[in-house]
Design a protein around this nucleic acid. Structure first.
Lengths: 241, 241
DNA sequence: AACTATTAGTGTATTTTTTACACTATCTAA
DNA sequence: TTAGATAGTGTAAAAAATACACTAATAGTT
């Protein structure tokens, strides 16, 4: 093939194809009030006016996908060092009214207390919504949420990711309830505790719950030393390069 | 905000952002000569001239991602109904010399015998390469291959995907070797057979290997009836919507 | 026909993991 | 003191995973 012809062909390819936009949408999970919640906005774009939407943005030209996700998390919550993992790309041709916008979904795990402290000023209009009340969403965001939740469920079983969702001090009933909320099933208390204790990565902090109208539960924290030994990859973010 | 201003802002967004191309790259796995192989091309683009590359193409404007992957598979192998699953998106800003090309990776499982029958005319220049010899690849394709192999390993453990790679009739030693090749570890023969037989989805076909210079192994086939009962989702392609 | 080389095929005992299951303990509020 | 509510604890049975060594069938050789 002649070089000129080759260049021509490339020109045509560029004209035909370099017309898409790339966005990142984040499914920001939080655990609060004994429920799994997602940080959402109210969509302001037709035809989805008022529908809950995920937090996303177009990817800048000099930004890779992980960077875009990290930026969105920071812009919206003020939190850095967020646990993030890519879910997958969503590329239906008609998924966005503005044109061809391929979106790459990430899920994020944050401690709601961190968000309350840092985030509210920036995350204007953002609302925590329980996953059980997220049925209709803007764009294909319900689809994205479902895929993300599916991935989170798998990850929660294989890695102790719950530590990214719970406050520094937490009780075993809280931890069990988190599992039950995410996996949407009830778990035997004794077997659950046996499994957690075998992990060996939490330790008692010597305190108890306060202000509860019943027997208070002991509080635990992650044992950073054991964590480093057995799950050092969780200290960095193993899923973000 | 004024409507005109709003439109203006959108115009700027379009100008700034709708400049990316989207491609799909397929990691086409095959099992042959007791090895896990990947269908590759020799890259003809600088600076990767001669490096092995995955089979990919730009996504057409009226095509979603799954459709593009299916098309690439068909164009390159002549095979329809290929088992495909999206791996993830790769979006480093500098991953492609032609500009910003976000690529979405898929892995595919095909029977090498099907490829030999249908494919060679179209897959001009395509070569099966053993994964062990794929160290340097064009673009970020080694990275894509690694992610795909990682996903395949997980999937192979949870689902009987090996049936997508083996010929209609296969022996248990072949099946075990496939596992060993994909997982890159050796497996105890008796325990392996126990596990496979508990699945209950293969049946003897009443034949034996021929032309082997030692005791011939019995041949098996997938029991379609049992498969429908226990793994009906594998008959369709569960990972392609 | 006997023998050698090579791979196929088979079962049991042990350990580990998972599951099922019910009562006592501690706190608040009345 | 009592009632209400939730926290906390152990054991036995079943299932799954692991470790392990010999006999069987075929082709090729002598």
């Amino acid at each position: 093939m002649e070089i000129a012809e080759n260049i021509n062909l490339h020109m045509r390819e560029i004209e035909d194809h370099f017309k898409a936009a790339i966005s990142v949408d984040c499914v920001i999970f939080g655990y609060d009030e004994s429920e799994l919640k997602v940080l959402t906005l109210d969509c302001n774009m037709e035809p989805y006016l008022g529908f809950p939407s995920l937090l996303g943005d177009l990817v800048k030209n000099d930004e890779n996908l992980d960077e875009a996700a990290t930026r969105i998390l920071f812009e919206r919550t003020g939190i850095t060092d967020v646990f993030l993992e890519q879910v997958k790309a969503f590329g239906e041709t008609d998924r966005h009214p503005m044109g061809r916008v391929l979106t790459v979904a990430y899920y994020a795990l944050i401690k709601v207390e961190d968000y309350r402290q840092n985030g509210q000023p920036r995350g204007i209009g953002a609302k925590w919504r329980s996953i059980s009340q997220l049925n209709e969403m803007a764009f294909d965001h319900k689809n994205i949420l479902d895929s993300s939740l599916h991935l989170l469920r798998k990850r929660l079983i294989e890695y102790p990711l719950w530590m990214k969702l719970l406050p520094k001090h937490f009780s075993l009933p809280e931890l069990q309830n988190l599992f039950e909320a995410v996996l949407a099933k009830s778990i035997d208390k004794r077997n659950f505790r046996k499994k957690i204790s075998k992990l060996g990565i939490i330790k008692e902090v010597g305190k108890k719950q306060e202000d509860v109208p019943h027997r208070p539960a002991k509080l635990y924290a992650v044992n950073e030393k054991k964590l480093r030994e057995d799950y050092s990859f969780l200290l960095k973010n193993p899923f973000i390069s």
